[in-house]
């Protein structure tokens, strides 16, 4: 029998996330013969439209429709998934803020292997799946072997698997709500209250054509000035990686990344930024990327068009001076 793979579909405002199709590609790399079932949880008409949408690319769609899931709380969803998923199934979940909340505990409850943040697969041999992961913020990769013979929960790094142009399918939508609810609603020990929206900052980096982006390599708050000087010379705005916001040197609205903003500038200059996927995954619209980093092996050089291996504290002021000379000439 073909291996059963389940893909948990993340959705918002009635539209499936890009990772939906990426998981089909990932499932194909795990096992080309796998039959892939989409699992969609939510409520009402939004859920119905997501189910319709994914039915065109998945062979089968399982839906869990309950008002308690109108805003999906991973703690409530997990026991429902445990009730409907078959033994020894392989469950794919995007490795994002939702997947990180749902998946580790799910693997325990299913007594399945857990394989987090996979970026590639290299086949199954005697019930063992060979996968590629990254460690140390992407500075090195590893092969891992996961015994999936008793089932597995695998989180998939968003953007790592190329979504195939949706093979058109006419998937059945199967209503799994009754089975998921058997025995009642659990997970009530964590109760959703509200969403607190991000504060709006003084600049909107999502609209900037030129972003001069600064990371932990700037070392000290006092050095931030040279970054603003460069941005001014170039006519761009200053954005940053997460540690700069954590240190409260810049406001959250300037953070580029999965937990910050998605940007689409024409030119992106990454200064002392290592290139973690949570950062570079939010650079859209193929900007021209310039990376300046003192570590020649920093992963940012893999995504940059042009790289300079140097100390930014020395390089930035010189670059700023030269641009200013040019402009006054």
């Amino acid at each position: 029998m073909a291996r059963q793979v389940f893909a948990y579909i993340i959705h918002k405002d009635g539209i499936a996330d890009d990772t939906a199709l990426e998981m089909i590609a990932a499932a194909g790399k795990i096992d080309p013969d796998a039959s892939v079932t989409a699992v969609v949880a939510g409520a009402g008409s939004e859920l119905a439209s997501v189910c319709n949408e994914v039915a065109s690319s998945f062979a089968e769609v399982w839906k869990i429709d309950n008002q308690a899931l109108a805003y999906v709380n991973a703690e409530m969803l997990r026991p429902m998934l445990v009730r409907i998923l078959p033994e020894r199934g392989i469950v794919l979940i995007p490795h994002d803020h939702f997947g990180m909340d749902l998946a580790p505990g799910l693997s325990i409850k299913l007594d399945a292997a857990y394989l987090p943040d996979a970026v590639d697969f290299e086949g199954i041999d005697e019930g063992k799946l060979k996968a590629v992961r990254e460690e140390h913020t992407g500075q090195v990769s590893t092969h891992v072997l996961s015994d999936i013979s008793e089932g597995a929960v695998i989180t998939i790094r968003p953007g790592s698997f190329k979504a195939e142009e949706s093979k058109s399918s006419e998937g059945n939508v199967v209503d799994k709500t009754a089975e998921a609810m058997e025995g009642g609603l659990l997970g009530g020990a964590r109760r959703f209250l509200e969403i607190v929206e991000a504060e709006v900052g003084d600049v909107d980096i999502t609209k900037s054509d030129i972003l001069v982006s600064v990371g932990r390599g700037i070392e000290d708050e006092d050095n931030m000035e040279i970054v603003f000087d460069l941005a001014e010379a170039m006519g761009g705005d200053v954005s940053c990686s997460r540690p700069i916001v954590d240190a409260k040197w810049l406001e959250k609205s300037r953070q580029v990344g999965t937990s910050g903003q998605t940007v689409k500038p024409k030119v992106y200059m990454a200064l002392g930024i290592s290139g973690a996927f949570q950062h570079v995954g939010s650079l859209k619209g193929s900007p021209f990327v310039i990376a300046i980093n003192k570590n020649p092996r920093a992963p940012i050089f893999q995504v940059a068009d042009v790289g300079i291996v140097d100390d930014i504290l020395d390089f930035i002021p010189e670059l700023t001076d030269r641009i200013n000379d040019l402009k006054s000439a």
């Binding site: 394989l115 990769s141 893999q302 042009v306």
Partner: peptide, 18 residues
């Protein structure tokens, strides 16, 4: 159930022009 086999540095396209 999940074991690390090895560490490596992937060959990823050409990367940046240094």
């Amino acid at each position: 159930k999940t074991k690390r086999l090895d560490y490596f540095v992937p060959e990823l396209g050409e990367g940046a022009e240094i």
